[in-house]
Design a protein around this nucleic acid. Structure first.
Length: 486
RNA sequence: GGCCCCUUCGUCUAGCGGUCUAGGACGUAGCCCUCUCAAGGCUAAGACACGGGUUCGAUUCCCGUAGGGGUCACCA
């Protein structure tokens, strides 16, 4: 029996819920579910200028849509709250005081202007832009506006363990005296994350790779506080097709976008898992449970995967096909006004015809609109097969109309048999007959299987549409007898 | 640019020293099936970045080089 873990996700409520957040959450969720323990949602809202009031709610909603659930968070009471960092300022202030008292941090009242000048000068000298330590040995009064900075050793190096990469060592000379507490008295990420992870008993930190270079600051903080360092695993960043860090300019990044564009949560989750983990055995399709069972944190990939929307679409199609019709119908209703307005029984009957034709649920409307309109207006040219004439086509469609009219009830088997028999009779290839009928019934070239579609549409509606098509071809009052084309 | 991370088909990957004339998936092309489109089946093209080591033997281990990425904020 392995020890339970405490993991967390710490999204920042500054915008739309990000797929990167879902990606990181998935791996945290997997570890917590595999090992037992707790998964905490902590809202990192320490940047009050970028704060977006809707964002937190959206993040929680979209993660819930994906099926990634938390044991503790702003909306799930637990023993480690509050779960918004903006509500924990007293904790950080106290922590900062400890650091100042021990000499690990210091107050700084340098103005933005001075900082800019210093950095500009450093850049001009081709040096690393960084804080020059101006306030390191000064004593800045606590009652005047100031920030608190971490006093990073000038030399030496800091090593830490990454669960995926082993020991990483970074020279302290490349680490800046990071601001820990901002002028507005809110902490920066670095302080808040270390303080909270410790306070909440976090044992494993699975987060994005972009934090690796910040690790020395965090290690220094853990040491200054005298705290144990949780195990860290830095996940590779999801990438745009050009291999840069995934961004909304180059790739959809909002989870909301994926939901609204007809992606299934199971498919997105499966795909994200594939981006960072391999089940081996060439197994690419798996459930969340199967992923969790196979998951081992130290087997997470280190190389950065390109987020390939095309492959996601394929996988989404796989999931659509394996979703039971009633469930798929419900999902369509949730996303498509046309599906929502449709008769539910009819919708559920249509679903099996289109399930294998959709990569996204949003394709439903294009595929099925002809079921829900009153009148089809087939184009003259579409109705007449190549090498057939107007009069001949009108006659054949009239015969098809009669086939329908003479049927007791429309069933796929009998309708197909009679239409094929008709085709034979008039020497039309099945392909020609069905295409002409398809245009008459749907007005379009690509549809679900037309026989089944006609059965769902109903006898009366089919007769009406065939009559309309015959009208398009010529004078209905002047019937033309069926005649062989050659 | 400094530092850090990464490096197998276009993309996602399997491979953990001999099983590799390198396997699978997406995509692409062709064929089959077929009432359209799909789905499905079959086939094809397509990769170990490069150079040194280590070793009887490197895709696999080590070191360089190159390439890609990240990071250098009172943003996370």
């Amino acid at each position: 029996m392995v020890d339970p873990v405490v993991v967390r996700a710490a999204p920042s409520p500054t915008g739309d819920p990000h797929v990167g957040t879902a990606y990181v959450c998935l791996f945290n969720y997997a570890l917590r579910t595999k090992r037992g323990g707790r998964f905490i949602l902590r809202i990192d809202d320490t940047d009050r200028t970028r704060y977006n009031a809707d964002s937190e709610r959206k993040i929680i909603e979209e993660l819930a849509w994906l099926g990634l659930t938390f044991d503790e968070g702003p909306e799930t009471a637990g023993a480690d709250g509050p779960y918004r960092q903006s509500e924990r300022t007293a904790i950080y202030r106290e922590a900062v005081q400890t650091l100042i008292d021990s000499g690990a941090a210091y107050r700084c009242d340098c103005t933005k202007e001075r900082l800019d000048e210093v950095r500009a000068a450093q850049r001009a000298r081709k040096e690393q832009p960084r804080y020059d330590g101006h306030c390191r040995e000064r004593s800045v009064a606590p009652d005047a506006p100031h920030v608190v900075r971490l006093k990073v050793p000038r030399d030496g190096e800091t090593s830490f363990l990454d669960g995926l990469r082993g020991t990483i060592t970074i020279a302290n000379s490349t680490v800046d005296d990071q601001v820990l507490l901002k002028t507005d008295q809110h902490p920066t990420y670095h302080l808040a994350t270390v303080v909270d992870d410790h306070a909440m008993g976090v044992t494993h930190i699975l987060r994005a790779e972009e934090w690796i270079n910040s690790m020395p600051k965090h290690v220094l903080l853990y040491k200054a506080f005298g705290w144990d360092i949780p195990q860290h695993f830095h996940l590779p960043l999801l990438r745009n097709p050009d291999r840069s860090k995934i961004s909304k300019r180059k790739n959809p990044t909002s989870i909301t976008w994926y939901r609204e564009n007809g992606f299934l949560p199971e498919a997105l989750l499966n795909f994200l898992a594939l981006m960072g983990f391999s089940l081996g055995d060439d197994q690419e399709e798996f459930t969340l449970d199967e992923f969790v069972a196979a998951f081992e944190p130290d087997a997470i990939k280190t190389s950065a995967p390109v987020f390939d929307l095309t492959k996601l679409e394929w996988l989404n199609g796989v999931y659509i096909r394996k979703t039971p019709a009633p469930v798929l119908a419900a999902k369509l209703v949730a996303i498509s006004p046309m599906a929502a307005a449709a008769d539910r029984t009819l919708l559920e009957a249509i679903v099996p015809l289109i399930a294998e034709r959709m990569k996204r649920l949003t394709e439903f409307e294009d595929l099925c609109d002809f079921f829900f309109v009153d009148k089809i207006e087939p184009r003259y040219d579409d109705l007449i097969p190549k090498k057939r004439t107007e009069t001949n086509t009108a006659a054949v469609l009239r015969a098809a109309r009669d086939v329908v009219a003479n049927s007791e009830t429309l069933t796929p088997e009998t309708l197909e048999a009679s239409l094929r028999a008709l085709g034979e009779e008039v020497s039309w290839k099945p392909r020609e007959l069905f295409m002409s009928v398809r245009f008459a019934i749907s007005g379009k070239k690509v549809t679900p299987p037309i026989i089944e579609s006609m059965c769902l549409l109903g006898k009366a509606e089919c007769i009406e549409r065939l009559d309309d098509a015959i009208d398009v071809l010529g004078d209905p009052e002047n019937p033309i007898l069926a005649a062989p084309s050659s």
